Amino acid sequence: MAMDASRTTLSPSAAAEVVLTFVNTRAIDGSREELLDGAAFSRWLRKEDLIDSPSLVTDADAAAARELRDALVLVLLAHTGEQDEAGRAGAEEYLRRSAELYPLAPVITASGVHLAPTQSGVPGALAKMLAAASDVALRGSWMRLKACRNPPCHLGFYDRTRNSSAAYCSPNRCGAQVAMRTYRSRKAKEEGR
């Protein structure tokens, strides 16, 4: 069922946009945490059209969503070459367990196949995140979904470079910040000799 990797494009699919929208709900650069509590998570789910209005969303649901999001961010960091093996392994295990909590079923039609949640409400919305990630992987673009290696940022982004080598959401902002920190650290070590 794997798709041809040569079909990978330099533009994100709709499924990639769903994953990126979800991982970028964290408070970054002065933005607010969109999954802070049940009320905030409910607003975000409705804004993204991922849940029906009468669905109840609790603080525990928001906590589960943050854990799923954080696991995805750690996996996307690995796509930039981040070497936190223990963190990545824990995130991958969490995602495996999440697949059991938020199951998907194949929907087969004359025009194709896609994965759909088997539950409604919040579990169905979180399953949609897993379905979107699966779709991106099956299309051969999973490694292009990344999280910025700049520690205060970790913004999710789609790597549009031809050789899939981007490590920062913005070379001019985050890439420059990391380069400057590295330079200052090296300078301080040299002066401390």
Rank of each mutant, 00 (worst) to 15 (best):
A2S: 12
R7E: 05
R7T: 09
L10R: 15
E17Y: 00
V18P: 09
L20W: 00
T21I: 00
V23R: 01
N24F: 01
R26L: 10
A27S: 10
A27V: 04
E34F: 01
L35E: 02
L36T: 04
D37V: 10
D37T: 04
D37W: 07
G38S: 12
A39E: 09
F41W: 06
R46C: 04
K47V: 14
E48W: 06
E48R: 13
S55L: 09
S55P: 03
V57N: 14
R66E: 09
L68S: 10
R69G: 12
R69D: 11
D70P: 04
A71I: 04
A71M: 00
L74N: 05
L76N: 02
L76Q: 14
L77D: 01
L77V: 09
A78V: 02
Q83E: 15
E85Q: 13
E85F: 12
A86T: 14
R88A: 14
A89G: 06
E92T: 10
E93I: 08
E93M: 08
R96T: 09
R96I: 05
S98M: 05
E100G: 08
L101C: 08
P103C: 02
P106S: 03
V107M: 06
I108H: 06
A110C: 01
A110I: 01
V113R: 07
H114Q: 06
H114M: 06
L115E: 09
L115Y: 14
A116T: 09
T118L: 11
T118Y: 02
V122D: 05
G124K: 10
A125C: 06
A125Q: 08
L126V: 05
K128A: 11
L130F: 03
L138P: 01
L138S: 12
G140L: 08
S141C: 03
W142V: 03
W142A: 15
M143K: 12
K146V: 05
A147Y: 00
C148I: 07
N150W: 02
L155K: 15
G156I: 12
D159L: 06
D159N: 11
D159F: 05
R162W: 01
N163P: 01
S165N: 12
A167S: 12
Y168H: 13
S170H: 05
S170G: 10
S170M: 05
C174V: 07
A176F: 00
V178S: 01
R181F: 09
K187Y: 00
E190C: 00
E191D: 07
G192S: 08
